[in-house]
Each structure stands twice: as C-alpha cells, then as structure tokens.
Design a binder for these strands. Sequence first.
DNA 1: GTGGTCTAGACCACG
DNA 2: GTGGTCTAGACCACA
Lengths: 132, 132, 132, 132
Amino acid sequence: MSSPDFIRLDSTDSSPIYVQIERGIRAAVATGRLPKGAQLPTVRELAVALRVNANTVAKVYSELERNGVVETRRGVGTFVAEVVPSLPQERVSREALRDFAARVLEDAAARGFSREDFVAELETQLKEEKRA
Amino acid sequence: MSSPDFIRLDSTDSSPIYVQIERGIRAAVATGRLPKGAQLPTVRELAVALRVNANTVAKVYSELERNGVVETRRGVGTFVAEVVPSLPQERVSREALRDFAARVLEDAAARGFSREDFVAELETQLKEEKRA
Amino acid sequence: MSSPDFIRLDSTDSSPIYVQIERGIRAAVATGRLPKGAQLPTVRELAVALRVNANTVAKVYSELERNGVVETRRGVGTFVAEVVPSLPQERVSREALRDFAARVLEDAAARGFSREDFVAELETQLKEEKRA
Amino acid sequence: MSSPDFIRLDSTDSSPIYVQIERGIRAAVATGRLPKGAQLPTVRELAVALRVNANTVAKVYSELERNGVVETRRGVGTFVAEVVPSLPQERVSREALRDFAARVLEDAAARGFSREDFVAELETQLKEEKRA
DNA sequence: GTGGTCTAGACCACG
DNA sequence: GTGGTCTAGACCACA
C-alpha cells in the first residue's frame, strides 16, 4: 500500500495537485481498483510517494471523508467506505453526462486531436483494461 | 458574428473563464465552425455577450494571436488565421492522445459516470453532429 | 534574486513594458545568467523593483510559463525551467536570422547610426562580456 | 517609382505598420538608396503597393516632412530633402549607440539566436551590399 | 470603433 | 506568502 499506483500526477495537467489526487482516488474507488474496505496509504506515505506537501494529501483525505468516500478510524488508518455513497443525484444525471461529454469533445478538438481518433482511443483503453 | 454561439460558459466548469473561452474558439477553428479568415466578434462585443470583462476577452485573443490561431489587424478586428498553425508536435503526438484519453476516463469515473456510458455518449454526440 | 539586474526598463524603447521584461528574462535564460532551476524574483518583488504594476509582471511570467521557459510551482515561486524548450523551429531558422539581421540593420540606419559603427559596437560589447 | 522595393512590411514585426514604413524610408535615405532629390511614390501608389490604408502612408509622409527628411511640392509630389537634416544630437550620440546595441544583442539572445552568429550575419549582409 | 497597455485593487487557490 | 483570476476604468495607437 505504499506504492500509490492508482495516482499519476501530471505536470501538463493544469488542475491543482489536490484535485488530481482526489480524482485518482475517486476513480480507483469507482472502478473497484480500490475495493470497499481497502486501506489507503497514510497521509505521510502518500505525500512522500508523490513528493507533495503532506498538507495537500491531508486536505484530500478530509474532503473525501466529508463526502463519505473514505472512513478514518483513529489510530488505525484510512479505509475505503463500506457503503459507497451515491453521489448527489444531479451529478450523475443524464444531463450532466451530456454536458461533460460535450465539454470533453470540445477540449479534445481544441487540443488538436481528431475527435474520432480520440473516441477510438478511449474505446481501446477501455477494452485493454477489461482484458487485463 | 455578434452571436457567440460557439462559446458556452459553464459555471460548473472549474477552469477559469478565459480558458473556457479559448477552448471554445480553438475548437470552433479546429472543427471548421469558424472558417479561415472569418472575423471573430470584437473584444467588446464578446465581452458583453458573455457578460465578462473586456480584458478577459482581450487576454484570450492575444494568447490566440501569439499561437497563430488568429490574426489581428490593427484597428480593424480579429480574424481566424489563414494558415492555422500545426500545433507543437508534442501536443498532437500519439502519446499525448493516450495520456489525454487516460485522464479523461479517470475524470469520468471520478465524477461517478460509468465509463462505458460516457464513451457511448461521446459517440452519440459525434454521430448527431455529422448528421446535422 | 531580489535585485533584478537582468532587466533594464528603457523609456526610450517604444516596445511595451511587458515585452521589455520578457525579452530581458529570455535573454538572461538563453545566455545562462539565469541558470536552469534558478528562482526568479517573485511577482511582487519584481513589480516593486521595476516600479511596475504586479499584473504586468504576472502577465510576463504566465507567458513565459506557457512557452516552457519557466515553471511555476504553486504557492512556491517561479523557476527557470529545467529543460529549456527549443524554440519553435521556425524562429531559429537560418532564414529567420537573416530577416532579423536585415531588420536590425535597417533600424540602425533609420536611427541615424552608421551601420559599420553599429556592427563594430556590437562586436566590442560581445568581447567585453567574454572578458568579464 | 511605383515599386517600393525599399520597404518590406514584416508581419512578424510587432511594430506598427507606420513605424515600419517610416523606418524603411529613413533607412533608404540614410544609406543613399533614395538619393537626395529623388521622388517618392505618391501616397496612393505606396498605399496600394503595400496594401495599406492611405491614411497610414499619409501619416508617415507628414511626419517625415515635419522632420525635414522629405519635402512636399504641392501638385508635384514628395521628394527626398536636398539638405538631409542632422538628427537631433542626442539620438546619434555615442551613448545612444551603446544602448541601442545592447538592446539589440539582448533581443537576439531572447529570440534564441547565438549572438555570435547574429553579429556574423550582420557583417555578411553589410559586405554583400557593398559588393552589389 | 478597433485592439493594446497599464494601473489599482479585490479575491481566491495553493502549499 | 506564492501565483492566478477577474473587474473596472483609463489612455493610447491604429485605421
């Protein structure tokens, strides 16, 4: 658990570090790579592994706890919540998906990618992961 | 030209306003919705239409000019560049596409979307646009 | 780092302040006076030292970051990039050098300088710097 | 005289068009390519040739006339002044030359050119012109 | 009327 | 304390 293989900090990503970390953890939980009840690395471990300020990691953990994604047992550690909280309905609504998808397509085009190539690449990655 | 239908400011998007505007314009140019040589709305027009400070729009235009996406003719206006510059090689490389796609998938999962649903939605949107 | 000895604002120079600052920093980086990894003065420091608005300096820093000349570490400061990007090929091409040189010669003549005197002065300055 | 071969508008030059034109004419006069008494193209001719607004050319001519570089004979045309005015002493002073040279070297470095290559190129161009 | 520059000042995100 | 974003408003250069 000391190797945070579920998080890749990307210096070309303009989003703040804490957002990248939170996104990585949320995604790992959502996809089951971090199963319910699994223990997360300690704040210090993760901070050292990612070469990041410990405060930054602590901020992420506390936010995740507020949202019920993880649970902290004092003196023991931090664990993926047993009951994964249903996200606020609004966020996963059909409309939210459409908006998010539209924005992503726009972003891909703005970066100079062919949108068709981009979607094809997404499918490839999804398939590869299933096989693995 | 006075109706900036190619830009939607999204308050749920955490990226700064000027990034959203820039992304919208770049995408419109890349997909041909803003053809080469077309005049962009004036700084002030777009500022009013988006309810944004004129400096914010001006910042976007000047960045786009720096990158050769648009050309400004002094005292005349801003136009889509006749020769749209090939983006720096690095950005459109195969590797860049993979990284971007991976990040997007992660983001989708972190937001609580099923990645399969998400990719399906992307395809739907692409097809709809072609038909239109 | 608090004394911006690598920048001289020249009121007889018609180019905008932010261009002069950017040129100074780029030159300092290119010639090694600002070595890789070195910290630049903070935005506010440089603004005070040059008696310029902080936004003006911030604009320069952000342009330099966009071009990969510097890296900003959030909440920490701004540093010369470890890998200084090779300028877009076009700019350093032989042709670009010819054009730039031609323009400079023209400018010197237009200002009333003998072009021979001017080139001689350039050589003198280059030699002096090497000796120092 | 309808082909303004002594002026090259450079879209990569950030200085305003009227400055570029004025610089070109001043340089042509200073180097003798436009000898004393020679007739300049008419405002309209030059405007058409350079694809520039006639007002822009007119502005240049009137400024050059104010400075005594050219003379306008009503109904006849515009001519290089017989007595080339000595520029204000300050501009051609030794100190001004040093400052200008320093700025040029800085600019060359900032553009990614080796300053040695740059100075060598200047010499080459000077020699070539003499031979021609 | 067009875009460009600069200032002043506020507020925020980050570490 | 760092840089980033945005606003408001002024003034200028350009055509």
